[in-house]
Design a binder for these strands. Sequence first.
DNA 1: CTGAAAGCGCTTACAG
DNA 2: CTGAAAGCGCTTACAG
Lengths: 334, 334
Amino acid sequence: MADVAHRAGVSVSTVSRTLRGLSTVSDTTRARVEAAARELSFAITRSASSLVTGRTGRVAVLTPHLETWFLSAALAGMAPALREAGLDLLVYSVADVRERADFFDRLPARRNADALLVVSFALTPAERARLDGLGMPLVFVSQHAEGRPSVYVDDADAALRGTRHLINLGHRRIAFLQTSDETGFAWSSKNRLAGHLRALADAGLERDDSLIMSVPGWKGSGMGAAVGRLLSLQDPPTALFAETDDFAFRLLAALREANVAVPGRVSVMGFDDHVMAGVLGLTTLAQPAAEIGRTAVHLARSVIEDVDGAHRRHIVLPTELVPRGSTAPPPAGS
Amino acid sequence: MADVAHRAGVSVSTVSRTLRGLSTVSDTTRARVEAAARELSFAITRSASSLVTGRTGRVAVLTPHLETWFLSAALAGMAPALREAGLDLLVYSVADVRERADFFDRLPARRNADALLVVSFALTPAERARLDGLGMPLVFVSQHAEGRPSVYVDDADAALRGTRHLINLGHRRIAFLQTSDETGFAWSSKNRLAGHLRALADAGLERDDSLIMSVPGWKGSGMGAAVGRLLSLQDPPTALFAETDDFAFRLLAALREANVAVPGRVSVMGFDDHVMAGVLGLTTLAQPAAEIGRTAVHLARSVIEDVDGAHRRHIVLPTELVPRGSTAPPPAGS
DNA sequence: CTGAAAGCGCTTACAG
DNA sequence: CTGAAAGCGCTTACAG
């Protein structure tokens, strides 16, 4: 900054004021400083600013997984919003139990970011308490946290509408498939199932637990086995509701392998509206992941700026049923 | 830190030395300082340390896209390696031209990270020069940069083996489909095509440019049109090689829609070994994205520590042909 | 083994 | 509107 000041023939104070966009700088001076900064490709040292202001200019994301459609899309939504605010993005991903313990032990984000976005992270009560006592603004993303700023979709309502769509098509036997893995999406998962069950109840359909299936994640052939179990039931389902699109894709593959026509013999519905859902013609419930990310950043900014009420705002974004070729009325004889 | 010093009855210098684990502190003093730090639940302000040491404890990633399989997988590979080294991860994603210009104009990473990982970013010569003059350790990921530390796979060789596999199956007319979008993967893309062409030449097959197809990215129905053009050729291809798995998935969808049997009428091959490739039975060339990420971090650490020769190391990771159900000999009459 | 002091690169009263 | 100076919380020679 001293170099810039020297080149522009002003003091560092003035450079600082100019670069921070304060209005108390004359136009000519501003122009000179900006030119000098550009010529020297000056980049500010955040550490120094941080030391004075107590702000880091960084927002951290805490997530259990880097490799899901949702997280990628949410990050992609955050990026422009952060850039616009001049904030950098710090990513903490804690996959296994050990990393997780380590993170909550050391809480490295504490002094390294102005806010922490907790993305679809199923926290234990102890972890939750630890974060609460952090003295650092928190924003919960893809999960609602009582009395804390949160942005999410109404999973239960979305699932309810999904199941209702299947019921409207004439389905009476509808299975729900969820992952048995620890994905961090536990909260969403539970709510989607709840919504599904409510739709059944609303339609006067009896709950049948043999139609609720927990299937292991990516590894192994669990999906094929699950399909086998479902289709060999006394009264097999004519529709399958998968908790996420990723899960539905695997389901579609298993069904194809088993030569089960979709939607001829069973209808399939997903949740997310993953890009591939359009490609594969999967009916699904779209959730606006990028917008969730963008909104989370806006909320974080409000909380950082200490805007009134921001600390307890809950923003619920809309979901949308996207009917595609994988759902149709059940086969005639069923 | 001053509080800790006061409570322990020593100077801040001693507190600093103790907390950083330097051995030049007597056991009794160390014990007193550590007790005081614990009682005050002291947390160090890293901005201050950074300002003095010049180290930020952060590694930045520069990428044109957050939403590709490769980037997610690479990040997932980086995360544990960074954590192990006590480094934080900063992500700069510059999607469009404006963001890109802005990034290279301000180079925000410059003073805010100890190293910059440039991930599958097709740099213009000007951008390349800009980074080179950054005075900041650079590691090129998924692209090789002359005289600069790089980690990547041999795309040309991989593609060559892929095409050879198709030739070995008996295919003589093999199309190559690449995206016409600015994906940042230009470098890989060019090399894959080159490898494909070399395999054809090696087998004595003539190059036919009508079999090389540039198709627009995710939007629109470009893929269907491309398939139409290929299948209506005088002498249509019996095998289609897609530049990435994501692209191959769209291709598979377009073929299904057009009622073209795979691999009955055409074989399809991808590149990446995306999780879905296994699910959909796509033959592909696996590249170890997570290992690329991990290796990039190790390389970055070497460069930061200024290890001898690290500045010009090139690490080439292996690829592997994964034959699955989407490739088979061409139909009899062809 | 320990302390006093300089200084890292900024921001911010305080003057002018 | 601009500059000189203090100071943010650390680390690091330099003495002792």
